[in-house]
C-alpha cells in the first residue's frame, strides 16, 4: 500500500474512532436532559466554567497551529505549540479540580449527579488527550519530525480538538441550557 493511501486510512480510521467516542457524550447529554430538563443550578459560577472552556478552545487552536507548523517543517514551532496546548489543558483540569474541591453542587442532587458525571468524563478524555499530546511531544523532541512524519501529531491534535468540542458542548449544556 502506498504511504499516501496508508495515511488516508489512518486518518479515516482515527476520525471514525473519534466519532464513536461522541456516543458516550451523547448518552450523558441525553441523560442530563432526561433527568434535569433545562434546569441549571443557580449555584454554578458561569465565569469559572467559561474560563475552563476558553482555556480548552485556545489550547485547541494552539495544537492545530502546531501541526500546521510541523507541515511547514517548523519543528520548534510544533514543540512550542503543543507545549502551550498542554499547559492550557492543565489549566482547564486545574480549574475543574478547584470547582470540584469547593463541592458547590452536592453530589447527591439530581443536577450534581449529571454535573459530576459529565465534567468527570470530560476530564478523563482531557487526560487521554493530554497523554496523547505528551507522547507525540516526547517523540518529536527525541527524533525531530518533519513534514513527512506528522501523523502522530495530527492524531493527537484530532483527539484534542474532538475533546475541546465535546467539552464546550458539555459546558453549554451544564451551564446554560
Amino acid at each position: 500500500m502506498h504511504t499516501a493511501t496508508k495515511l488516508e486510512a489512518y486518518r479515516f480510521g482515527f476520525r471514525l474512532f473519534v466519532l464513536t467516542q461522541t456516543v458516550p457524550f451523547i448518552l450523558i447529554w441525553a441523560t442530563a436532559y432526561l433527568f434535569n430538563g433545562l434546569y441549571v443550578s443557580p449555584r454554578l459560577n458561569q465565569w469559572t466554567g467559561a474560563a475552563e472552556s476558553l482555556a480548552l478552545v485556545v489550547s485547541g487552536l494552539c495544537a492545530t497551529r502546531a501541526v500546521a507548523a510541523l507541515r511547514q517543517s517548523d519543528g520548534a514551532g510544533f514543540l512550542a505549540g503543543f507545549k502551550a496546548a498542554m499547559l492550557l489543558g492543565l489549566v482547564n483540569l486545574g480549574l475543574l479540580a478547584y470547582q470540584w474541591g469547593t463541592r458547590f453542587v452536592p453530589v447527591s442532587s439530581r443536577f450534581g449527579e449529571i454535573y459530576y458525571i459529565l465534567t468527570g468524563v470530560s476530564a478523563f478524555y482531557t487526560g487521554i488527550g493530554l497523554a496523547a499530546m505528551l507522547l507525540a511531544f516526547l517523540r518529536a523532541a527525541r527524533t525531530g519530525w518533519g513534514p513527512h512524519s506528522y501523523w502522530d501529531a495530527e492524531a493527537a491534535m484530532t483527539l484534542w480538538n474532538f475533546q475541546v468540542l465535546m467539552a464546550v458542548i458539555s459546558y453549554l449544556i451544564v451551564y446554560w441550557i
Binding site: V23, P24, T31
Partner: peptide, 17 residues
Amino acid sequence: NLIWLPEIQMTFVMGLL
C-alpha cells in the same frame, strides 16, 4: 459495534458511579 459498544460502556460507567 462502533455505535453501540461505546454506548454500553458509558452506561456501565454510570452504573458503576
